[in-house]
């Protein structure tokens, strides 16, 4: 599932998503990590990287 498959998935949706994820996992994603989120896989990867840090 990627941004191009879902018309409602715009940058605002990404930021809302990031906020929920940060809240849930107690992490903080940086601007470049957020910019790289294109699909669910890249979101999961950003979360994993931040948790390991």
């Amino acid at each position: 599932m990627s941004k191009s498959d879902i018309p409602e998935w715009d940058s605002v949706a990404t930021v809302r998503l990031v906020l929920s994820v940060e809240q849930e996992f107690g992490i903080h994603l940086s601007t470049d990590q957020v910019a790289d989120i294109r699909d669910v896989a890249s979101l999961v990867q950003a979360i994993e990287t931040s948790i390991k840090r």
Partner: peptide
């Protein structure tokens, strides 16, 4: 909040 600003032009931070 630089993420909100650079990604969506939201100011102030969420």
């Amino acid at each position: 909040d630089s993420v909100a600003w650079f990604s969506t032009r939201q100011h102030p931070g969420l």
